[in-house]
């Protein structure tokens, strides 16, 4: 019972804040609402018994990614005035397009019947031990390969931020 209310509460927060992300004029408000959305998502993860992911989600998204975002916004000092006025036609078109996408998705997925739901047999799948075993077992290769991804991202970010010597 409790968890259902929680679900609806978190869902409401997530969607409401997601909307505000899009429609806030000031980028920093967008970022802050996005953080709230992320927290709501983390709450959902908790509800879904994925504690590890919830914590990682907070650390990575709220703790690192969004900090970077806000950092950049501050550094660039993006205020309300920066965003120029866009023609309403484009805005309406964008909204309509997005809404159509949403409608299509919702309409297509509304009727989804999950035929092959296995029994609520394994509450421990979100536990770190399980995840660790899978990650370093079956997913060893992607784990190793993702180091290349990080290296390249790191080199790339450093390269782009470096002052070019001329």
């Amino acid at each position: 019972m409790m968890s259902q209310y929680l679900f609806y509460f978190l869902t409401f927060v997530a969607i409401f804040c997601a909307l505000l992300v899009v429609f806030s004029k000031n980028p920093i408000y967008s970022a802050l609402f996005l953080i709230v959305t992320f927290f709501a998502t983390a709450g959902h993860y908790f509800l879904l018994n994925a504690q590890f992911l919830a914590a990682v989600h907070v650390i990575v998204y709220a703790g690192a990614i969004m900090v970077l975002f806000i950092y950049v916004i501050m550094m660039l000092n993006l205020n309300r005035e920066v965003e120029p006025h866009k023609s309403t036609a484009i805005k309406i078109a964008a909204t309509v397009c997005g809404c159509i996408l949403g409608l299509v998705l919702v309409a297509a997925l509304r009727e989804t019947e999950m035929s092959a739901i296995s029994e609520y047999s394994n509450p421990g799948i979100g536990l770190i031990e399980r995840l660790g075993n899978v990650l370093f077992g079956a997913y060893m290769v992607p784990f190793e390969i993702s180091t290349v991804l990080f290296l390249s991202a790191m080199v790339g970010a450093v390269f782009l931020s470096k002052k070019s010597i001329h």
């Binding site: 969607i15 997601a18 899009v22 397009c97 997005g98 809404c99 949403g102 998705l105 919702v106 997925l109």
Partner: peptide, 10 residues
Amino acid sequence: SILFSIGAIG
């Protein structure tokens, strides 16, 4: 789906 669409709208 809704969250995804909101993202796309954005």
